[in-house]
């Protein structure tokens, strides 16, 4: 049985513009967000520890044809990639993506674990993996902060919540969403980079994958309101600066108990 790890190729936030009320990705570099790279590393470590193959899975548009992106993922511990390319999936919302992923993994088959990241770098819904599990009817859990091995058909894991750590036994097959700090993403080695180009990439037939299950309708996009700040500089010795700060606090009525 293989392990699948899902990741998203998306435009880098720093290159995004809003023009004419729409999101403009023309100048954006497309890459896989850090949290997804962390998920791939966590999955790769578990695959290595349990002697399983790791298959990288992604659904999206024609950007997935990029050879550098493919080799990048293949140099991080994936034995192969399975991709669905359909431009209808570009800027898909979480439900639409989950529906497409569910069809894709069903076609890939032969897995007993699907690993997803905490959230994508662009939309960060933290929900796609959860929806995927539900659509597949599989046990699904989020907040996984440690993957401690597979015993028989049970995954040993830990989950991080507000109130502490839960030690879990998850029956396989299952879907787990890992946290962004479960581990650090790896620095791919030269050997792995050179071998990446020889690993298989399978393009699943997009015609067999539903790509229209939108779960939300976008009404508007805009830039957040920006507040013009005064940017007044305080300078001098630390003592002089401390005096200036206290004077300002008093003037603005910000000292505890008022003036």
């Amino acid at each position: 049985m293989d392990i699948l790890v899902c990741f998203k190729l998306s435009p880098d936030s720093k290159d995004i513009l809003v023009s004419n009320g729409a999101i403009n990705t023309d100048r954006a570099e497309w890459n896989v967000g850090e949290y997804d790279l962390v998920a791939v590393e966590a999955a790769a470590q578990l695959a290595a520890a349990t002697g399983r193959k790791l298959i990288g899975v992604s659904v999206g548009g024609s950007q997935l044809a990029n050879t550098r992106f493919r080799k990048n993922m293949l140099s991080r511990g994936c034995d192969s990639l399975s991709l669905v390319m359909n431009d209808a999936l570009v800027q898909a919302d979480t439900h639409k993506t989950a529906v497409a992923l569910a069809a894709a993994v069903t076609e890939i088959g032969n897995y007993d674990l699907i690993v997803c990241g905490e959230g994508s770098q662009d939309l960060y819904f933290r929900q796609t993996g959860i929806q995927l599990g539900e659509l597949l009817g599989l046990p699904v859990i989020n907040g996984i902060s440690a993957l401690n091995g597979i015993e028989g058909s049970v995954l040993l894991a830990e989950r991080s919540t507000d109130s502490g750590i839960e030690v879990l036994e998850i029956p396989l097959p299952a879907v787990v969403c890992v946290t962004s700090d479960i581990c650090q993403s790896r620095i791919p080695k030269m050997k792995d980079i050179l071998q990446a180009g020889r690993k298989p990439v399978k393009e699943l037939d997009a015609a067999g994958i539903p790509c229209d299950a939108t779960g939300s309708e976008i009404i508007k996009v805009a830039l957040p309101k920006s507040v013009q700040r005064k940017a007044v500089n305080f300078s001098g010795t630390p003592e002089e600066i401390a005096d200036q700060i206290v004077a300002m606090l008093a003037k603005e009525g910000l000292m505890p108990g008022g003036m």
Binding site: R68, K71, N72, S75, I187, P188, G197
Partner: peptide
């Protein structure tokens, strides 16, 4: 090449 770009990213990250 892709490989050189990926190597550059890796080395820079390290």
């Amino acid at each position: 090449t892709d490989e050189q770009q990926l190597l550059a990213e890796s080395l820079k990250e390290c």
